[in-house]
Design a protein around this nucleic acid. Structure first.
Lengths: 220, 220
DNA sequence: GTCTATACCCGGATAGAC
DNA sequence: GTCTATCCGGGTATAGAC
């Protein structure tokens, strides 16, 4: 047995075994659900573990502490959360670009409402853990995309509008359907997962934004 | 001393002494600040008491428990929160009415952002304590005001629009400035308390809503 | 009517067996 | 890698003195 094969733990690229990866993923998903619903203080490690199908202690084997989990979740969703805005293209026409952006944001509100609510929660508490990201990355991104809008204005393609307010208002309208989902359901019995309602929301937001910048939305 | 004057505790209309009233008010104000910032679970009775300038035990003399305080705060702000919508008047012209409504909502976001955030917080958690109010009062109110908007449409005064989405979008845009105040401050360095920024927000929202329903906002 | 002291419970985190 | 047992801190709420 001398010189025998060593206990081969296949060293994967990230240094994690398959089950480790899977467990981490399950934890992050469960944590997103809990944090977004109950806020940071309102969620317990035990609940997250329960949702993820494991024991509290086992969870604490993967993440050393509660803040660690929270930050991992936030980091995990931030990229996908900001992705749509990055795609605003100055070289295409504003009606197409703005419509596409709104549709993407509404799609995210439909498919990942928890991410929206987690983000809202964090910001409402003063954004203690994502201050940096907002001040640096997001601020830069918004400045960049404001330039795109100013470019459209200068080219006479859309009406004179404050770019920053325009961006804020698009965020407000699209994220509202995720953040206030409960209220919307109580008042209408529907949410973005209903195709009809989703279409109604898309039309309402797009109509408002396009006419708001002086474009007349076509019937599609 | 026989038959002397009895220790006269003036029985006030609500059965509360002046200091009791004042203390209750101070507690409610402090509680609003804490709950809106840290959510229900994130705030402690001790913090509320500190903000209200009294001891934890003394606070618990006025409110028996944490949920009691929370419900009192919610109830206290709900009326004022829904007041602006009640004023939408079908007999005046839509441009005036919608502009006034938006301005009132933005005023509330400027002066009582905590109320907005508390409300958002509660709804995002599934509205466990105000389900009733939403299902009954608010639902009725929205139905009533949807009729107002349909009335304007039928009279040819505004473009065909889904009334419920219109209401949601006005809420979304106006409340966003309170709920995401932190983010807005980090990105622009301003908030609704700055007169210039407030004016910019009013113009942006009013322009968007009015043109969205087919009205051209005048330059004021 | 207000404060001090304290009981009690719950959630986060660790130690150590398996 | 996963579990059980347990510690510890903090937060709610109460008992009782003043």
């Amino acid at each position: 047995m001398s010189g025998a094969k060593r206990q081969s733990k296949k060293q994967r690229p990230d240094g994690l075994s398959r089950i480790q990866e899977m467990n981490r993923a399950k934890i992050l998903e469960a944590a997103l659900g809990q944090f977004s619903r109950f806020g940071y203080s309102g969620t317990t490690i035990e609940k997250i573990a329960g949702e993820a199908g494991m024991s509290k202690s086992n969870l604490l084997y993967y993440f050393a502490s509660k803040p660690d989990i929270y930050e991992a979740v936030l980091e995990h969703i931030l990229d996908v959360w900001l992705a749509p805005l990055r795609m605003l293209d100055p070289d295409r026409d504003p009606a197409t670009e703005l419509s596409a952006y709104i549709r993407q944001k509404l799609q995210m509100s439909a498919e990942l409402p928890e991410a929206s609510r987690l983000f809202a929660n964090e910001v409402m508490q003063g954004a203690p853990r994502i201050r940096r990201v907002l001040e640096e990355d997001l601020k830069g991104l918004v400045a960049e995309k404001s330039e795109v809008i100013r470019h459209w204005i200068a080219a006479g393609k859309i009406r004179e509008t404050d770019p920053v307010h325009l961006i804020f208002l698009i965020w407000a309208m699209t994220q509202h359907y995720a953040d206030f989902q409960t209220q919307i359901e109580l008042l209408t019995g529907q949410n973005l997962k209903d195709p009809d309602f989703r279409k109604g929301a898309e039309e309402a937001v797009i109509a408002m934004v396009l006419s708001g910048v002086g474009l007349t939305p076509g019937p599609a």
